[in-house]
Design a protein around this nucleic acid. Sequence first.
DNA 1: GCATATACGAGACTGCAGTCCACAAACAAT
DNA 2: ATTGTTTGTGGACTGCAGTCTCGTATATGC
Lengths: 196, 196
Amino acid sequence: MNEDVKSAGRPRDDGAGPALKDAARRLVREHGYGAVSIGQIIAAAGVSRQTLYRRWDSKADLVLEAFFDSAGAPPQVPPGAPVRPVLETFLVQIFRHLDRDGGAIRNLIASAQTDPAFLTGFRRNFVIPREDMVTGLLARAVADGQLPPGFDIATATQMLHGGFWYRMLNGQPLTDGFARAMVAAIWPPETAVSRR
Amino acid sequence: MNEDVKSAGRPRDDGAGPALKDAARRLVREHGYGAVSIGQIIAAAGVSRQTLYRRWDSKADLVLEAFFDSAGAPPQVPPGAPVRPVLETFLVQIFRHLDRDGGAIRNLIASAQTDPAFLTGFRRNFVIPREDMVTGLLARAVADGQLPPGFDIATATQMLHGGFWYRMLNGQPLTDGFARAMVAAIWPPETAVSRR
DNA sequence: GCATATACGAGACTGCAGTCCACAAACAAT
DNA sequence: ATTGTTTGTGGACTGCAGTCTCGTATATGC
């Protein structure tokens, strides 16, 4: 596991990876995934083609890591506190993040469809962590009696994420209102927290 | 509207379009979207490159139409009959269809992310009709009192479709059980009339 | 110093989607 | 029959992702 073991040979240029990620992130944000070529990225990073492909297997792989090397911490809910507003806030935050990088993420999801290896990495780094955050919140709500005992956490989680994938992939805006509407749609009325 | 107006010039080869669609459907089913090249398709159809691009704008466009030129009739529910089993059956049918051609459809969704024009066509020919079928069923259920008056039809529809897009795009199987679980998740538990 | 191992830049190369062109074939109008 | 129009074929061409090779630079171990 120790990455510092010195091996013979010329050491990697530590600046090349970050330079490539920065260039990729900037160019993709500016022009869109499809309009940015590998040639432009390596030129902007001042690096050769092979140096890029020594670190990543594909353009999509590089861009994926450029956008998501920071995962974000899962939201914590103190026991007994109402879960629903936390869930709404969490989804709204995801929406706002995706609204900025939506175009790039759409292209990443697209790339995942043509590359099984990339899909695996995408799920590990992006999909699963976000799924776990939602299932964690819902499980907490069930444990605290804020949702009924038989509540289908797995299905609800996939429908929540599915809902915004669907809107995102169909080019529709991700609004705060839609996030709250989705929570309302899966949250049983009787158990709704009637604050206000 | 009238496609039969004779115009000067050599008439189109009516067999070329179907031959291309048949070849595309067969090859994509057999080898997957990414592994099939335009060259293979036109060779299998016995047609030139230009003939293909005179009829479709891209490989994805052709494959899309090859898979979805038959839209399917929307399910009809007689007034007063219970809507929920019809909805479940409808979703199960979609699932089974997508489970067969899932690989191709995933690639179509992927292609739609990089090509705005294709996204438009994809939504018109595939997404919107299926959305309308679900909204129609849910509206009927609301009108018949099988769902509460304030039921959020639009959000529920997008979550239902979103749920199976999500599973499909994440490479997970589309089972009949998941279809029914999604309906259960958005269908209020004891909804005959109202609460409160 | 010398051998070995790895990284680097530069650029050639392959395969593919999509465009473009020249010429042939099939029709309508005259 | 001639002209004009549209489609067909075949093939050249462009631009891109990803692979590969070569010469060179920089490290470790003896």
